[in-house]
């Protein structure tokens, strides 16, 4: 488990350059707040979009479109604005890395 945490921490630091003290599993924890609707680790059983393995830029663009209203939504336009840009960056990076 220590090894996994170390890898996760290195991965996050390497990807977003977040060198300040934050939880080594912050990205995983944030992404888990999406799992209720989008499935454990972003693997949806259907009816909601799967997020696992989706390219980060594609996910970030969708989120930006929800925020701007360019992409019509029933609920995501209200949820996306609850997260900071840094958090959305961590979340999309994490989902993109899921197989």
């Amino acid at each position: 488990m220590k090894l996994n945490i170390a890898i996760a921490a290195f991965g996050i630091a390497g990807l977003v350059g977040a060198a300040h003290a934050q939880d080594p599993n912050l990205a995983r924890n944030l992404a888990a707040t999406c799992a209720n609707c989008h499935g454990t680790n972003g693997k949806s059983l259907g009816g909601m979009e799967s997020l696992a393995g989706e390219p980060k830029e594609k996910l970030l663009q969708k989120l930006a479109d929800y925020r701007s209203g360019d992409k019509p939504a029933t609920i995501m336009h209200q949820i996306v604005v609850g997260y900071t840009d840094e958090q959305l960056d961590l979340i999309t990076t994490w989902f993109a890395a899921q197989k």
């Binding site: 209720n36 609707c37 259907g46 009816g47 029933t74 609920i75 209200q78 949820i79």
Partner: peptide, 27 residues
């Protein structure tokens, strides 16, 4: 400024509600 409620009752969210149940039960 985040969160909120539906604009109106709708059947799209009827499907979403059942998909929510399926996914959270699996979660």
């Amino acid at each position: 400024g985040a969160g909120g409620v539906s604009a109106m009752a709708n059947d799209l969210e009827g499907k979403a509600a059942l998909a929510w149940a399926r996914n959270i039960w699996a979660d």
